[in-house]
Design a binder for these strands. Structure first.
Lengths: 350, 350
DNA sequence: CACGTTATATACAACGTTTTCCAAACAAGC
DNA sequence: GCTTGTTTGGAAAACGTTGTATATAACGTG
């Protein structure tokens, strides 16, 4: 019930050693289940350690061995998709005796670098970079220094780090196909603009999937791509231009849910009714999608799974693997009212 | 432009020393601007350090002195209010040469304790606990061990740590008064249920403010409090009970924005129109409130400012202050369409 | 019984800092 | 020129681990 550990013990290896009547290096080995320790001693040592509330001093450890800490860099806390990823990371890490610590890069390469430096300085055993905005070259530099796994950047030929992604191209295709099945062909893609440079990013792949599938279905004349930064105001004005222009599309497929919500907002302000006049689709399937006032069709990319797999790979790298692995999960379309034209009879499914 | 630091230098104090032609302890002092170093030497050392790309080894530092790391514990990443706080923390910390690292407590005291332990083990110089769900007694235990500042728990008499809060009571009063000015008197309060225990929490204060102000305005017969956990399903069923029951209120004041969004959703499903049939108010003024489909009136508690002040206090504690300080910021009501009955003429204010 | 061969436990040298204590150098006061 | 004091730089002892090298004991084998 209490839960909280009796602290301020400050017991060190030496204290445990003198309590158990053995040498302090014996304690070190006994507690790490190292080779060359008799069962009787291990038991005695463990008992003493337990009683004294011994906890290894991470800084001291960091000086010689591992710190059992993983650094996770996310670009933006506001995107609740990242929270989902972190959930998977945190669980998997703690089950392996590691602790995950989060840093925030604010989508600015400068800040990202500072955070990464800080993590390396603190001797973190491995780094998990979620949707970093730095260049592949810089990623290589980081990966050279410390075991690294990257989520959200498609670099299947990277050798010095692993990548974990959802198949963004397929995700985008699913959307286009779904809309076409609803007899909607005039589909625009709303992307994120103003990023440093072409980066092998998820955005590229989503856009490519969109373009390719449009082409495949013979809808190439309807291809239309607009973009805005992450700023709410910019998203709104881009959406306004798109929806009040003369080429207003029948559907808008947004690179992330939040952008979709803004688009829906602008549409409402323009007096458009959804889904009759306009259909909107998002990406990430964040919790807000399920709210009836949005009921937003979206692509689920299984953030938790992504986090788990990435952590698994990272721990493998920390353990010594050097050959690269690239994990891709198939995304799923979650259809909701925002794109289902013919509504089902009654039902207010709570 | 490049930005990324030349890594893998691995330069240590000794390397810098031999490069500059001085002893390594001289380097240590020179770089920390310690007493007893001539200007000429300081300059020479700084030049060498710069050239070799020297970075202090945090683990080694942790063994003797500070780690220049602050641990931030948040209960739940999904609440984007916390992101806002962290923004303020991060900025203030890095300006003082500190790095903030985030841990997530999942609203479970067990996990919270594990994360706190991990932070203490890693010799973090101070802890910033955001809306922790642990007991005041446990907070004291933690604070005894390491400089601590708590955000989001009202304990104005705590001596071993500082607190930073918005004035939840006033916030709630603002809401009630605002609604009454709109001639709405039948106001219910929607709170968070199923927490460990009474904790001196923000919830308590919001509820108290609500009750007191209702009383003051002579609306005591309309006082009605319902609650649900953080789970979306539970919120929805509680909202359904409230809104379809015979005592359906005219307004629902929710302890946090997300709950308000769920309530709005349920209301829509029930065919209620807002704001004519029902009025909803939230707390935190998260970015989603501004979306036209919500246009949710909410209380802004200035998360960024909260984070900045908390960090300032924490750094003071790290520097040695032991007398407690308790900072309170006045919240502000941000009115939006969800509660403004008579709509302004035209305007689609983008 | 000398002689490897295993087991087991200890000693001790790192690891990269911070900090205390000392020595050297130099100036000032008599 | 001798104390006294005040800078300035260096030597060395922590800090709490890990990991390697070494000592000791126990145990067959030839």
């Amino acid at each position: 019930m209490s839960g909280i550990r009796k602290r301020s013990s400050g017991a060190t290896l030496r204290d445990v050693a003198s309590d158990a009547g053995v040498s302090f290096s014996a304690v070190s080995k006994a507690l790490r289940n190292a080779y060359g320790v008799s069962d009787s001693m291990r038991l005695r040592v463990q008992a003493s350690a337990e009683r004294l509330g011994y906890r290894p001093h991470a800084a001291a450890r960091g000086l010689r061995g591992k710190t059992f800490t993983l650094g996770v860099l996310v670009s933006d806390l506001h995107n609740s998709f990242f929270s989902e990823i972190f959930g998977g990371v945190s669980d998997t890490a703690s089950m392996a005796g590691y602790q995950a610590m989060l840093g925030v890069g604010q989508v600015q390469p400068v800040v990202e670098n500072a955070v990464i430096d800080a993590m390396i300085d603190r001797q973190m055993d491995g780094l998990l970079l979620v949707a970093p905005s730095m260049s592949p070259a810089d990623l290589e530099i980081v990966a050279e220094e410390v075991p690294t796994v990257v989520i959200g950047v498609h670099l299947p030929h990277a050798t010095s780090f692993d990548t974990v992604n959802n198949d963004d191209e397929t995700g985008a295709r699913l959307v286009v196909r779904h809309l076409q099945e609803q007899s909607i062909s005039d589909i625009a893609f709303f992307t994120l603009a103003g990023l440093p440079e072409a980066r092998g990013t998820t955005l590229e792949f989503r856009e490519r999937g969109y373009r390719d599938e449009m082409q495949l279905l013979g809808l190439q004349q309807h291809i239309q791509v607009v973009g805005a930064s992450m700023d709410s105001g910019e998203i709104r004005s881009a959406a306004l231009r798109l929806l009040s222009g003369k080429r207003r599309p029948r559907a808008v497929f947004c690179w992330t849910d939040y952008a979709a919500f803004e688009v829906i907002g602008v549409a409402k302000e323009l007096g458009l009714s959804l889904p009759e006049d306009l259909v909107v689709v998002g990406y990430d399937n964040t919790p807000y999608c399920a709210l009836p006032q949005h009921s937003l069709t979206s692509i689920d990319q299984f953030g938790q799974l992504l986090g788990q797999q990435a952590t698994r790979l990272l721990l493998e790298r920390v353990a010594g693997r050097t050959s690269p692995e690239h994990f891709v999960v198939k995304p799923t379309l979650v259809t909701r009212d925002s794109t289902v034209i013919i509504k089902p009879s009654v039902s207010s499914n709570l």
